[in-house]
């Protein structure tokens, strides 16, 4: 199976740009350099053709940044992203644009990702028209098709986003992404803001679309049960690093990394048994000053001296199962 996408040792750093005076002050040692957030720290990932890869983690783990780097909304500070084994920089302009177009993103909050002053017809139709996938004359038909596929009534094409419910707005976002005929979707917390009964409808739509259109997905979520349901393979991130990756069966039956185990344990379950919530201690550290060595060590019940000093490598611990923990040595 070929790789639809490969992310090779990608890092992404954010910092505030210095003005001239600040730079001068920094140069003369009068001012500390601006703090740098390492949102992604040497992250590698492959996604096979037609695969659904789930990315889980808590706030600040870099899962959304990774999605944005892959979608081309952010430039990586280091490392490369390959589409079908080709670097975008190596492709001639038109091909690079076409390759980009094949990867589309669906966001968490449909109300902030849809222009409130545009009608649904414009929201969905603008991109395919610009990219020549349809003509102005056929646009109405084209938009109707896209809406119907996402489970929206095409007769509502001239309405504005606020006239739709939350679930329907998410469908508009999906229709917009699919309108440029991508073969890969990046869903960033796409069902997190929805009610349970609506969440099931949207997840079903994703599953149906995958079958109909042979889509490849990167599915970013903090919700383990959603990721477990939809993914073939799961990547667990913590503070900008991948700590574990495995097939969904393997990860949920034999979690290796202490962080993954803690996440699974603390997942609220419907098992109607009165139970005591026992929590992992501590806060999620700020990505501005992550702990040394293994980022998880201050909260890890099994931490050793080595964990404070040395960064654990992501190593194979089973068939298609990798984990970054010193305990595996």
């Amino acid at each position: 199976m070929s790789n639809r996408l490969e992310v090779r040792s990608v890092s992404k750093r954010f910092s505030r740009k210095c003005g001239l005076v600040e730079r001068g002050a920094e140069f003369m040692g009068l001012k500390a350099p601006n703090p740098v957030v390492r949102a992604l720290d040497d992250v590698s990932l492959t996604v096979a053709e037609g695969e659904v890869v789930g990315i889980v983690g808590e706030s600040g783990c870099g899962k959304s940044t990774l999605g944005r780097v892959v979608a081309g909304l952010l430039q990586a500070s280091e490392g490369t992203v390959l589409f079908r084994d080709k670097r975008l920089q190596d492709l001639p302009g038109e091909d690079a644009e076409a390759a980009r177009l094949k990867v589309q993103m669906i966001f968490q909050d449909p109300s902030s990702s849809l222009n409130p002053r545009q009608r649904v017809r414009e929201i969905i139709g603008a991109a395919p028209l610009h990219h020549g996938l349809t003509t102005a004359r056929e646009l109405d038909d084209y938009v109707s098709q896209q809406m119907a596929r996402a489970g929206l009534d095409p007769s509502m094409a001239s309405r504005f986003p606020h006239q739709f419910s939350g679930g329907q707005r998410q469908r508009i976002g999906i229709a917009r992404a699919l309108a440029v005929q991508p073969d890969m979707l990046i869903c960033d917390e796409s069902v997190a803001a929805l009610d349970v009964s609506i969440q099931a409808q949207i997840l079903n739509l994703f599953l149906d679309l995958r079958k109909q259109l042979d889509l490849t997905y990167i599915f970013i979520s903090h919700d383990l049960s959603v990721v477990e349901h939809i993914s073939d393979r799961v990547v667990v991130m913590y503070l900008g690093r991948v700590v574990e990756e495995a097939t969904v069966e393997e990860l949920f039956s034999h979690p290796n990394h202490p962080y993954t185990r803690a996440l699974l344990q603390e997942r609220p379950s419907l098992d109607p048994v009165q139970r005591s919530f026992s929590a992992i201690e501590g806060e999620i550290p700020s990505p501005l000053s992550p702990p040394s060595g293994c980022h998880f060590h201050p909260r890890c019940p099994l931490a050793m001296d080595r964990c404070r000093i040395e960064r654990p490598e992501l190593r194979t611990v089973g068939s298609r199962h990798k984990s970054a923990c010193h305990l595996n040595d």
Partner: peptide, 24 residues
Amino acid sequence: NGLIASLPAHNQRGSRLKQISGTT
């Protein structure tokens, strides 16, 4: 009943979820 049945944890992995149709 519909709400509980629609939770991913109560459905087979990768299968369509049982959904309540319509909206509130």
